[in-house]
């Protein structure tokens, strides 16, 4: 009984034979798992180890090393807000504060079902649109404090602060 859906199993298999070594497949496999589940759980790591021959220590090292992989449940919308140079200069801090206020209010209401999480992130490589954030895979530019409410509301309803 696999912990992966049929389609995910197929994806994993295809990655395993796509590169010069099986181990090279670890990063793409983890991305594929996160595309479906958002994060990587221990049962999944165990199955990668036992069924797919991807050593659990190798997998855990990779998960812990890279910023994108998560080994704990994640929220529906993961906000990664750039706190680096240009974004910092053009209003990141205020916007981050505002987002945190929203998250606090939402989590007070909804607990673990709160739709947003916030991670202050390194440079996202789109400084001409500063301040910039990612919401899951979507890049959002000019995410200044005065636009935060309207931006977030596109993803989930916001209670009044």
């Amino acid at each position: 009984m696999s912990v992966f859906s049929e389609s995910l199993q197929a994806k994993i298999q295809s990655f395993l034979t796509r590169y010069e070594t099986r181990r090279s497949a670890i990063l793409p496999v983890l991305h594929a798992i996160q595309d479906e589940h958002g994060w990587v759980s221990e049962p999944q790591i165990e199955e990668l180890h036992h069924t797919y021959g991807l050593d659990r220590v190798h997998v855990k090292e990779v998960i812990s090393f890279y910023d994108i992989y998560k080994d704990h449940p994640v929220r529906k919308y993961q906000i990664r807000y750039c706190k680096n140079l240009t974004c910092h200069m053009l209003g990141a801090r205020e916007a981050i504060c505002r987002i945190k206020e929203h998250i606090t209010a939402l989590d007070a209401q909804l607990g673990e079902d709160g739709p947003f999480s916030l991670e202050e992130f390194p440079c996202l490589g789109k400084c001409d649109g500063a301040p910039v954030m990612l919401v899951n895979k979507e890049r959002v530019e000019y995410a200044t404090v005065d636009r935060v409410d309207e931006i977030l509301a596109k993803y989930a309803p916001l209670p009044k602060l």
Partner: peptide
Amino acid sequence: DESEPGTF
């Protein structure tokens, strides 16, 4: 990989 801050 373009991750040097300020580079896009």
